[in-house]
Structures are given as structure tokens and as C-alpha cells.
Design a protein around this nucleic acid. Structure first.
Lengths: 169, 169
DNA sequence: AAAATTTATGTTATTATATAACATAATCTT
DNA sequence: AAGATTATGTTATATAATAACATAAATTTT
């Protein structure tokens, strides 16, 4: 069974786009991937993923916890959200942004891919990116230094073009 | 006034080397850089930097706090160590490893440079690296995506060649 | 379908990491 | 020496994450 191709472009996150469609696609893909992996996308896990996908801004675990609590009127404790996050990370449906202690939806969860982000300090948006030449370069560098990579985290913090433009208005 | 050139090689951290010399060089450079910057490398800051340089393994703030307490028999509170770390980060004398919440000495503090590390899961050593082609690639990617970089963090977690070799002994 | 097993979630407590706010001390400037 | 600045001490608290055990739901076995 082949995995679905991601229809989500890489760098659209900070631009005007149909975010309802964005969420819908992400949720559909998530379901497909979980089915493919024999994993259970439970109500709680689906709910957390949907909350993460409300924006392209990484969200902290405690922010998600509060949002969960609001949606359900019952009390939600940290392990509840952390376990959901752990599951979503394992399935490759979200990424953890280390510089922010925060979590964001993966824009191409079906591909085996790196964990590379542009993070705008001003609007808070994190844009996932990946180019073959960068990955080749990383892999070659590791090889040259005798290092085998298990996990990769590239986080570039700065200012996206939209914010740059609006600051000069 | 020109800054001193770094005599520390990039990828020697996990190899056999004269670590006493390593520390000595780091401390001398630190003093020079602080003088150059008109910053005060106080006793406490110097002590923290020296502790960080005891190994090439990133150390957490609370581990450093315990080491400080041991050296001085007086109680040491978190802000003491965090303020020293903040200073050392500002001066470019150490880096923060985001995937580990830990801090490590910078091997070429006098150069304007990126924050790129190979982190071995097995021995705990973090090796700073930087190649022009990788940096060019990063910069070009950011330019293509309309993003201006303020801070860069590349952390590759995996296994270094020494550990790889010793696991097959 | 009931029992056994596995997986997921709830719950309480605790650990780990980091900062705020204010007091005191040391250093620098004049 | 007085005043200003910078650094450190001190107490309290914020923020992020996990451990340990109980309950509930789903899946598998019989």
C-alpha cells in the first residue's frame, strides 16, 4: 500500500492561503498514515493534532493543554497532552521545535524527511523546508567527519519576508 | 585590534588530545575576547567557563550549579549560573545545545560563526563543525524563501566513528 | 460473547529547566 | 569620596516534562 503524496507546498505557511483546506488535508493524511502504520488516531490524538493545525505557529504543550481543557470543560493534566504529542511525533505527524519547546504540524508527513524550519520571530510562523542539495551537503559533511546521523534538527530563527515588508510600511 | 585566530581544530573533540591544553587555550582566548569586547570575565564567569571546558560534553545548568557548589562549599542558586551562562553566550564563548538543554564551550569563539553540532548519543560528546559550502547552502535556501537569518541552530544527533568502532569490538 | 490481553487515558505527585523581583556587594566613573 | 553602574546573592515562582500507578477502552483469544 503506497502512502499518499503530500499536496501541501513547502513555503506557503506564512502566505495567504485556504487554511481550512490546510487543516482538512492534514487530518485526512494523518488518518491515512495511521491506518497505514496500524496505529490508532484516537479522539484525543485527533483533537490535539487539529489544535496544532489551527495555525502554522508552533504551540507549547501547556498552551495545547489549556485549549483542550477549554474544548472539553473537564480538567486536562500534562501527561494527557504529552502522550498525544509523543504519539504524533512517532507517527511523523508533528515536529518539535527545540528552540521554542513547541510543536507544529508536519507539512509532508508521508515522506521520510528532515526536521528543518525557518522560524519568524515576529509572526511566530515556522516554515518547514527541505532541499536535496542541503540534505546532500549535510550528509556529506557527516560522512566526512565520520558521523552517522539518527536525528536532524535545523532551526533558522529570523524574519520572514512578509514581516520584513510590513515593518517598513 | 585584531582578534586572535583559533588554534583549535574543529573535529578533534572526540579524539585523543591534550585536553589540558584545550582548556588553557579556551581560557586564554576567552580573556582576550572579553578584553577586546570591553566585557568583564569575572571570577564566577571564568569558573563556569572552566567547568564547561572540563569536557567536550554539553553540561546542563543544574549540573554546573552542583559543580559550582562543590567547588565553593557555599550554596549556589540557579540565577547565579544562568547569569554566567547568559554572559558567556553573549560573548560567543559557549553555545547552547537546544536538543539537550545543555551548554558547551565554543571551539572557535573569535570567528563569526554558526551553531552547528554533531552530537553523539553514546559518548555524549558534541562536535562543533562549520563548512563554507554548508553555510552557503543555508544562506541561499533562506534567500530563496525570502527569510533573513538571525540565529542558526543545526544539531545532528547520532553516533560518532569512535563509538561506532567500539560497539563492534 | 465472555475472559484475557493489550492499549489508551486519567490522576497525583514530582523532577527538570529557567526566570522575575528585589537586596546587597563590588567595580567603575567623576 | 560620592554617585552611578554592573555583578552577585537570595527568595520565590514560572515553565516544561516525566514517573508511577489506577481506570477505562479496545483488541484478541478462547
Amino acid at each position: 500500500m503506497a502512502l499518499p503524496k503530500s499536496p501541501l507546498p513547502t513555503s506557503i505557511a506564512s502566505q495567504q492561503h485556504d487554511h481550512t483546506q490546510c487543516i482538512a488535508t492534514a487530518m485526512t493524511q494523518a488518518q491515512e498514515i495511521c491506518t497505514h502504520n496500524g496505529a490508532r488516531l484516537t479522539r484525543l490524538r485527533e483533537q490535539v493534532l487539529r489544535l496544532i493545525w489551527q495555525s502554522h505557529k508552533p504551540l507549547g504543550a501547556y498552551a495545547l493543554m489549556d485549549m483542550l481543557a477549554q474544548e472539553s470543560t473537564r480538567r486536562v493534566a500534562p501527561p494527557t497532552v504529552y502522550r498525544a504529542l509523543e504519539f504524533l511525533l512517532e507517527q511523523g505527524l508533528i515536529h518539535r521545535i527545540n528552540t521554542l519547546n513547541a510543536y507544529i504540524g508536519c507539512t509532508h508527513p508521508s515522506a521520510h524527511h528532515a526536521n528543518n524550519f525557518l522560524i519568524c520571530e515576529h509572526c511566530g510562523v515556522a516554515i518547514e523546508f527541505s532541499t536535496q542539495s542541503l540534505q546532500d551537503n549535510i550528509n556529506q559533511t557527516a560522512r566526512d567527519l565520520g558521523f552517522s546521523i539518527k536525528a536532524q534538527s535545523i532551526e533558522l530563527v529570523g524574519c520572514c519576508d512578509r514581516c520584513e515588508a510590513s515593518r517598513h510600511d
